[in-house]
Every structure is written in C-alpha cells, then in structure tokens.
C-alpha cells in the first residue's frame, strides 16, 4: 500500500489491523463474452463476497458484538456500502483514475462508462483524491472503516447510548493514534472525520447505481447483496 502506517500502541487500532480481511479477488465467468455484462456480473459477485467478509469483520470490531442483534443489523444495513466504498477507495490510492474493485480487477473510466458506472467512477475518484491528499495510512483506514459502521445514523437503533459509546471508543482510538504518529498536525483527526460526508454521499450514489442495475434485471445478483440493497430502499 502507498502510505504505510507505523506500529501503534493503541489496542483498538492494532486489533483492527489484525482483523482486517484479506483482499477479495474477482472471478470473471470465462463463458461470458468480455462485455459490460461480464464486468457487472463479476462486480456484483465480488460485492456479495465482500459483504460476507464485511459482516464477519464487523463482529470483530471492538464493542460491536456487545450490541444487541437488532442494533448490529441496523448498523450493517445502513453502513455496509460505506464500508465497501472505503475499502475500494483505499485499495485505489496507488492507481491513477482507476478503481481497484478487487485485488486483481481495476476498472478504468472507459470500462465504467460502458457499464453504466460513470457517475460512480467520478464520485469515487473525488473521494480517492481526498484520501490521497491526506495520505491516509492503513491504521487510519481501519479506524475510519469502523467509524463508518458505528456512525450509521440508522433510525432503527434501539440502544443509542451503546452505539454512542462505540463511536466514542473509536474516536478515542483515532485521536490516540494521531497524537502518537501525527503530532505535527493537531487537526488531522478532524480532517479525516470531515471526509465522512463525502464517503456517505459516494456510498449513496453506489446504492442508487446498483438499485438501478437490479431494476434492469440483466445481471444475476446474489441473495445477500439483494437483501442488503433492499434494506437501503
């Protein structure tokens, strides 16, 4: 990765580094012709596997499993696309104008245009540019991902206090990490938190795009992906 972080003494950050899932690799169907349909089919299958990994990962976010099942569901149903988009943005930091959708699959602007993902490509590039400018490192990325999950603003949360406490714990971890490794910039954690609105905006654009793909019905979509999209409608 472009910006490698440093060893941290913060237990939450080091735990999040430890439980960070490995890369997901695209498995394009060789029986399909190389087309926008194959790109989208590959992408939707990849997202389904990423969703599975994201749910598994969430259980390891410190404090998440202590929430009620209803609140765990509310956070994931609301924030799953933000988590996926942040992962894609982080993987794409080293690329120029391409989206690293999988460990072995990067989509250029033209491929995105042909597949109906042009708006999403533009939105993601803006987000990636912001993280690149900030030199987001791996430690910051894993904490931001957990914060995106905890900061879902779902209206279905039962125990608001418990979710706020999870947010506080992650915020403390970020501040702790920044004071340890970026003491030269006392505003750094604030700058990173200020990227969250653009992350949500980009994730909303992604949800809109895949809801449209679902409506068109040309691409097979797995059950989990469909269920999570339906939760956003």
């Amino acid at each position: 990765h472009v910006f490698s972080g440093k060893k941290t003494t913060n237990k939450v950050v080091s735990h999040l580094i430890l439980v960070e899932p490995g890369e997901v690799f695209a498995t394009p169907d060789p029986s399909l012709p190389d087309s926008d349909l194959r790109t989208l089919t590959t992408l939707c299958e990849l997202i389904n596997r990423e969703l599975l990994m994201t749910i598994g990962w969430a259980k390891h976010v410190p404090g998440f499993s202590a929430l009620s099942l209803v609140d765990q569901m509310a956070l994931l149903q609301s924030a799953w696309m933000e988590v996926l988009v942040l992962g894609m943005a982080y993987r794409s930091l080293a690329l120029s104008d391409e989206l690293a959708v999988g460990g072995n699959l990067a989509l250029c602007r033209e491929q995105c245009r042909r597949s109906g993902l042009l708006h999403l490509h533009a939105a993601l590039l803006q987000l990636i540019g912001k993280f690149r400018k900030a030199k987001l490192d791996r430690e910051e990325f894993v904490v931001m991902k957990a914060m995106a999950l905890a900061n879902s603003d779902s209206t279905h949360i039962e125990n608001t206090e418990a979710v706020l406490s999870l947010q506080d714990r992650l915020h403390e971890a970020l501040q702790d990490y920044e004071s340890e490794h970026h003491a030269e910039d006392p505003h750094r954690s604030g700058k990173l938190l200020m990227t969250l609105p653009l992350l949500r905006q980009t994730a909303n654009e992604a949800v809109r795009t895949f809801c449209q793909i679902r409506l068109e019905g040309r691409i097979p979509m797995h059950k989990l992906f469909l269920e999570m999209l339906e939760a956003k409608i």
């Binding site: 389904n48 599975l52 765990q72 939760a231």
Partner: peptide, 19 residues
C-alpha cells in the same frame, strides 16, 4: 428479521450456506 434473514443468520450463527 424475516425480510433480513440472511444478515440475521450470519450475525447469529455465521453459517453462510445459501448466499
């Protein structure tokens, strides 16, 4: 939870079989 049965099951049991 009926509408969100896969997520519910994955969180509760962690057994992906028909995803």
């Amino acid at each position: 939870t009926e509408r969100h049965k896969i997520l519910h099951r994955l969180l509760q049991e962690g057994s992906p079989s028909d995803i």
